[in-house]
Amino acid sequence: MDNALGESFWSTMQRELLDRHEWETRTELASAMFEWIEALYDPRRRHSSLGDLSPTDYDALRNRVATAT
């Protein structure tokens, strides 16, 4: 992972998730981190490989194109 990318990722996770909650077990923390990455962070983060669209926006655009043809 690119160092700047990694630092940005962990900084965002720290600010949006880790600083806002406390967990009783490591399992709860792991589950919260997984959910944050899969449900919040990744679907809305823009990707240059997707034309600077988020995965959610890219899928919606792709589905509209597929149903139009």
Rank of each mutant, 00 (worst) to 15 (best):
residue 1 M to E: 08
residue 1 M to Y: 09
residue 1 M to V: 11
residue 3 N to F: 12
residue 3 N to H: 14
residue 3 N to W: 12
residue 4 A to V: 09
residue 4 A to T: 13
residue 5 L to P: 07
residue 5 L to R: 14
residue 6 G to P: 03
residue 6 G to S: 11
residue 7 E to F: 10
residue 7 E to H: 12
residue 10 W to D: 04
residue 12 T to K: 07
residue 13 M to W: 03
residue 14 Q to C: 05
residue 14 Q to F: 03
residue 14 Q to W: 03
residue 15 R to Q: 12
residue 15 R to T: 09
residue 16 E to M: 01
residue 17 L to T: 03
residue 17 L to G: 01
residue 17 L to V: 06
residue 18 L to C: 09
residue 19 D to T: 08
residue 20 R to C: 11
residue 21 H to F: 13
residue 23 W to E: 07
residue 23 W to A: 06
residue 24 E to N: 11
residue 24 E to V: 10
residue 24 E to R: 13
residue 25 T to L: 04
residue 26 R to I: 15
residue 26 R to V: 15
residue 26 R to A: 14
residue 26 R to Q: 14
residue 27 T to I: 09
residue 27 T to H: 09
residue 28 E to W: 07
residue 29 L to A: 10
residue 29 L to H: 05
residue 30 A to D: 11
residue 30 A to P: 02
residue 30 A to S: 14
residue 30 A to K: 12
residue 32 A to E: 08
residue 33 M to I: 15
residue 33 M to K: 10
residue 34 F to C: 09
residue 35 E to H: 12
residue 37 I to M: 06
residue 37 I to A: 05
residue 38 E to M: 08
residue 38 E to D: 12
residue 38 E to W: 08
residue 40 L to N: 06
residue 40 L to E: 11
residue 41 Y to V: 00
residue 41 Y to D: 00
residue 42 D to G: 01
residue 42 D to Y: 10
residue 43 P to M: 01
residue 43 P to H: 04
residue 44 R to W: 02
residue 45 R to H: 06
residue 45 R to V: 00
residue 46 R to W: 03
residue 47 H to T: 00
residue 49 S to V: 13
residue 50 L to D: 01
residue 50 L to S: 05
residue 50 L to N: 01
residue 51 G to S: 06
residue 51 G to Q: 07
residue 51 G to F: 07
residue 52 D to P: 01
residue 52 D to Y: 12
residue 52 D to T: 05
residue 52 D to N: 11
residue 52 D to G: 01
residue 53 L to T: 06
residue 53 L to D: 00
residue 55 P to Y: 00
residue 56 T to D: 02
residue 56 T to P: 02
residue 57 D to R: 04
residue 57 D to P: 04
residue 57 D to I: 00
residue 58 Y to L: 02
residue 58 Y to E: 02
residue 58 Y to C: 05
residue 59 D to A: 09
residue 59 D to V: 08
residue 59 D to K: 05
residue 60 A to C: 03
residue 60 A to W: 03
residue 61 L to A: 08
residue 61 L to E: 02
residue 61 L to I: 00
residue 62 R to G: 01
residue 63 N to K: 15
residue 64 R to C: 09
residue 64 R to S: 14
residue 64 R to G: 03
residue 65 V to Q: 15
residue 66 A to Y: 15
residue 66 A to D: 15
residue 68 A to I: 09
residue 68 A to M: 15
residue 69 T to G: 15
